[in-house]
């Protein structure tokens, strides 16, 4: 009689790794492909001809390269920001939903693995893989973006905010958790995937909406300047003589453009103001949003365990 001994935890993890070998390979390949693409983009960004003034002055070739870089950078940002989240939502829904749909989850539970431990392992393995891959891509994108030519991109743009900050990887975790919860609720792969993707889109939209409120905004006075292109604008308007802030007042319809003093007095105002998040608020907001999303993901995971426990002893 032979007894093969494995330590319980490692055995389960190894089993999950072997079961999901193919998706893990596909994900690894995608990360490698993404990283190679970013390295290529970095080289494109390092071509000396790219820098601003040359465009237009020396001919169309360089200008085309710069345009190409700018749009590729935006596409990369969108891919890094959105794709891993979508993949995570689908992975959570498919890896768990398929097992419930085909009854193979019962195979693990009828061995010496409790349903809770099974779910923990089924979440931990893809979580580590997705988190690692996305973090690597995020770091690489940040490196490409920071070292590349300044195309005047606002760092607060949703794609860039996700692709180059700490919130990117945690949204991936949220996607995985939502997928798992949807799978446990529906016990079907396809509806769970739809539900998880919808939930993910909702979380994304809510995040974009609520981001500015995560940190107290600063107020700047004075007329519009180019520096304001690089900040997160919440509102802009004029300050009246009584000191009241009236949002939305602007000088766009001025008869004599540029005569700001006349514009101000026409509106009965004394100065312009704008509520913004300056660059110094970038990392605080990244970290606060990271914390919020992480808490949300934890709550969703807890809900998933609760749903599992409700149906099983």
């Amino acid at each position: 009689m032979t007894t093969l001994s494995y330590s319980p935890r490692h055995g389960l993890i190894r089993a999950v790794l072997r079961l999901h070998r193919v998706p893990l390979w596909v994900w690894t390949m995608m990360v490698i492909a993404g990283a190679s693409g970013l390295v290529w983009l970095h080289q494109l960004g390092q071509e000396p001809a790219l820098y601003g003034e040359s465009c237009g002055a020396t001919g169309l070739l360089q200008c085309a390269t710069e345009l190409r870089y700018g749009s590729t950078e935006l596409r990369s940002a969108q891919l890094v920001a959105w794709l891993p989240c979508g993949i995570a939502a689908c992975a959570g829904a498919a890896l768990i939903g398929r097992e419930l749909e085909h009854g193979t989850a019962a195979l693990a539970w009828s061995q010496s693995v409790s349903p809770a431990r099974w779910l923990a392992a089924k979440l931990a393995v893809p979580a580590v893989a997705l988190l690692g891959g996305t973090a690597a891509l995020t770091l690489m994108f940040r490196w490409v973006w920071v070292s590349g030519p300044d195309g005047g991109v606002n760092r607060w743009n949703s794609e860039y905010f996700h692709a180059a900050g700490s919130v990117g990887p945690v949204y991936v975790l949220l996607g995985l958790a939502l997928g798992a919860l949807a799978a446990l609720l529906t016990r079907r792969t396809l509806p769970a995937t739809g539900l998880a993707l919808t939930g993910m889109a909702l979380a994304y939209t809510l995040g974009d909406q609520a981001r500015s409120s995560l940190w107290p905004a600063s107020e700047v006075r004075g007329p519009w300047g180019p520096a304001l292109n690089q900040v997160d604008q919440l509102e802009a308007g004029m300050i009246t003589k009584s000191g009241e802030h009236v949002s939305g007042l602007a000088c766009g319809d001025q008869a004599v453009p540029g005569d700001l003093a006349a514009c101000l007095s026409n509106h009965g105002a004394v100065d312009f103001y704008a509520k913004v998040h300056p660059t110094s608020h970038y990392w605080p907001i990244q970290l606060v949003e990271t914390g919020v999303v992480l808490t949300l993901a934890t709550a969703v995971v807890a809900a998933a365990f609760w749903v599992l426990r409700r149906s099983l002893p």
Binding site: T3, L4, S5, Y6, S7, P8, G11, L12, R14, A15, R18, L19, V22, H102, G103, T104, A105, A106, L107, A108, Q111, S112, V113
Partner: peptide
């Protein structure tokens, strides 16, 4: 219920891994 993508030997190995000390 069995995992269709595994071989018979791998399925038994799964049993060994999921039942440490009892297999």
């Amino acid at each position: 219920p069995l995992y269709p993508q595994l071989t018979v030997a791998a399925t038994l190995r799964l049993g060994a891994e999921l039942n440490p000390g009892r297999w």
